[in-house]
Design a protein around this nucleic acid. Sequence first.
DNA 1: GCCAATTAAGTTGTGCACAATCAAAACGTA
DNA 2: TACGTTTTGATTGTGCACAACTTAATTGGC
Lengths: 149, 149
Amino acid sequence: MKLLLDNQVCFDVHAASRALDGLYRGLLRDLGLTYPQYLAMMVLWEREPVTVKELGAALRLDSGTLSPLLKRLEAAGLVRRERSAADERSVLVRLTPDGAALRPEAEQVPGRLLAATGLDVEELAAFRSTLRRLTAAVDEAALAVRRAQ
Amino acid sequence: MKLLLDNQVCFDVHAASRALDGLYRGLLRDLGLTYPQYLAMMVLWEREPVTVKELGAALRLDSGTLSPLLKRLEAAGLVRRERSAADERSVLVRLTPDGAALRPEAEQVPGRLLAATGLDVEELAAFRSTLRRLTAAVDEAALAVRRAQ
DNA sequence: GCCAATTAAGTTGTGCACAATCAAAACGTA
DNA sequence: TACGTTTTGATTGTGCACAACTTAATTGGC
């Protein structure tokens, strides 16, 4: 009985995440961005330059994911990368003019997405609070599991 | 201001989903399953045989994802596939004895995972309710976007 | 000042997700 | 019955995510 798919929160989270991805895919199509690329651009629109490490900390991604993603953004002419003069290990990521110019159009997206969720302010706040505690607790547990094996 | 990553529910959902995936990775390591493979096995432990189409409906996945996933489960000796005699288009997926034998160990997982979330029954119910309405609303919106373009 | 340990990015390999396309089987209707 | 349409699953191509590993630069202890 414990194994019924319908009874598992985790599948609900998984399904919600993929549903959101799908909606983003539609909304970001005109911008030529995928959702993870959009997330990276969002960091850059707020703060620039950032190192790959900082980007990874903000998005919870490692260089194995970010390196090719940034390579694609660079190929699309939206960002450029250069090694830091101060620390040759680091790579600084900056917006190009084209990348900066994308911001106004991107600013339309969060509002449309929030509207699509159909959640009111109060429910949204409770939901996010639960999400964050869930993520923190699960991260902690994953660490414990890792240590044990 | 609208573009701050910290202010976006969708990123929270995305992050929670990845955190859960990570914990599952640790818990399923001994079973030799990935999370999506575990989901497919869960359907089969409840009902057998199922067609690829039925599996896809249960997991919200298409054949582009399921075909290679089932091929891997078959290679691991956990399931077998055969074309339906009644409808040669369909493929029936069944458990092998090895696949069925994995169930008891798998039954440990949901409980450990639920415990790891640290959520009480009441909060969990509200959370799942929000998640499901969110998914339904977002699916609807994605459909509308698709139709419009 | 030297060398081991650490850190930052990149690379490789595996697997998931999805769009687009294809082939074969089944269906429906004139 | 014949033929166009639909359905089912597989395949191809792209991109994300992560583990494991590599390389180069920096840091710290001695």
